[in-house]
Design a protein around this nucleic acid. Structure first.
Lengths: 288, 288
DNA sequence: CGATCCAAGAAAATAATTTCCATGGAGTGT
DNA sequence: ACACTCCATGGAAATTATTTTCTTGGATCG
């Protein structure tokens, strides 16, 4: 499906000539997208037929098909190799911010493990009570979003960004509750403490954080979110979009698992909103 | 830059044959991306040269270049014509959620007006105090994010999701303050009331909402966010991603405008985080 | 009514791509 | 150690696709 993933996966199995092509591809992507097969062959110092075979090897029908796929991937997939935005003009800043966000989504999509999502959704959908923890602006937003998505589905859920409250909630939690925590850095020691305590008490823990980090190590189920951030300090982190996407995916999965309850609850909420607002129409958004 | 936008803008100026090509393009996109110039010409019932001319007209160098651009656009741009996800399997749900989010970003990118962004950023960067208002889960998240992004840049800002507090804040605001409000539906009457009051008192108002809605009508500067939502009630709205992107764009613009203050403030915050956390490294994220 | 201009197609030329075949090198078996 | 085989690679030719040029038909304006 995605040229990039294939390129990196199969990399080791490439022959000398194919390696050269791959190097050009990864090194000068823009060129590769524009170039004809001959130009590409010349630059890689191989013959055109080798390029064609290379395309076939990558699961494409022909060079044209390959270029199309390459272009598709390039649109979102490889911007992270690109430099910063050109200027501080609104149009450029908007492009930069949005491209980075799309990138983050692209990358998280590739790195998400369906089995882990399944496991996490399973725990959440069967939980008596869900505690969503996160601190420090970014992660507290994620925790709130968990609450905001899940309560609509009939889940019992509370979010907290207060370390002390988190610890108390955890201590008071019952065995069939679930603790889901978010940490962008993976080094939220207070969250680690909550996870440890929860695990001691046989409470399931789910972490949205960097793989291999202290927070990840302390959690039972880890949804790894490992995106390289640009180093423009003036820009908000695009990783937020990835975290948010994970929240949405989990919430959707929980909704499908508890479909009946979700439907009833959503309908209830909608009904109240319609009754409350004057002239609200059918396409009323649940939660302004 | 984007084939789609051009296609729709220039649509009226197309000749008969060009219209036919455009119709094929819009009607069967997947085919158009795969097809050769001859296949495309046949399907549109025109001659190959006409297709080449059409490509040139759209600002492409040749047919190959055109296809590349088409493919780039297709990756994100036309998914909104696609039906719902195939199943409730984690992989499919993830793809659906993330694709929709990318779409929302794509669409908001196209519809953002740099001049309006400029104007909004200008007001925000010169404001003595910023009030970020939003209610009902989605918009309150946006308001919080405004606060969360802007305070780091040295802005004086507060967020509120409480209608009463919003009204009191507005009543108490000074003339050089700015009120920025978010409403997904555009029908948040309480926000409308705040905007009206603010305008009466000569306070600048910025709205992130649907164009032409009551909220939009009440605001001085309107950043229109008009995305069609899918009607899968189990899914969180992907429009959130668009709103969030707008927050980030505005915050970035404000950062560049008040670069000195932003730099100093960000450094201060970082310093405190580093001192507080044990073993925190240089790549510490500002706000976990 | 005629002239001119533009659009569209046909044909030819050009460019690109693929297939087929040949060569060379590495590895293996005798 | 030599030879055989297989595979990777590149070259040339054939095929295919694309573009250019030229011509025709139709529409508009004088």
């Amino acid at each position: 499906m995605d040229i990039f993933a294939i390129l990196q996966e199969e990399r080791s199995q490439f022959s000398t000539a194919e390696q050269k092509i791959a190097d050009i591809l990864l090194g000068d992507f823009d060129f590769a997208v524009k170039a004809s097969i001959i130009e590409l062959a010349e630059k890689a110092e191989v013959s055109p037929p080798t390029v064609t075979r290379f395309c076939r090897r990558l699961g494409c029908q022909n060079f044209a098909d390959f270029k199309v796929r390459l272009a598709k991937s390039a649109f979102v997939g490889l911007r992270y190799l690109n430099p910063e935005a050109k200027s501080t003009e609104p149009a450029d800043v908007a492009e930069d911010v949005i491209t980075k966000a799309q990138n983050a989504l692209f990358l998280i999509h590739r790195s998400l493990d369906p089995l882990i999502l399944e496991k996490a959704a399973d725990r959440l959908s069967r939980a008596d009570m869900i505690y969503a923890f996160g601190s420090g602006g970014n992660s507290s937003m994620i925790a709130s979003e968990f609450q905001n998505r899940l309560f609509r589905l009939g889940c019992r859920v509370t979010a907290s960004s207060d370390h002390n409250m988190q610890l108390m909630f955890t201590a008071a939690a019952h065995s069939n509750d679930v603790l889901i925590g978010s940490s962008f850095s993976g080094r939220n020691q207070e969250l680690v403490r909550c996870f440890r305590l929860a695990n001691e008490n046989g409470i399931s823990t789910i972490a949205l954080t960097q793989s291999g980090s202290p927070v990840a190590d302390a959690a039972e189920i880890v949804i790894g979110i490992d995106l390289a951030e640009g180093d423009n300090i003036y820009r908000p982190t695009s990783t937020r979009f990835a975290f948010l996407a994970v929240v949405d995916v989990l919430a959707s999965l929980v909704a499908y698992r508890n479909r009946k309850l979700s439907t009833v609850t959503l309908r209830h909420i909608k009904q109240q909103l319609v009754e409350h607002r004057d002239g609200a129409d059918d396409r009323q958004i649940l939660g302004d």
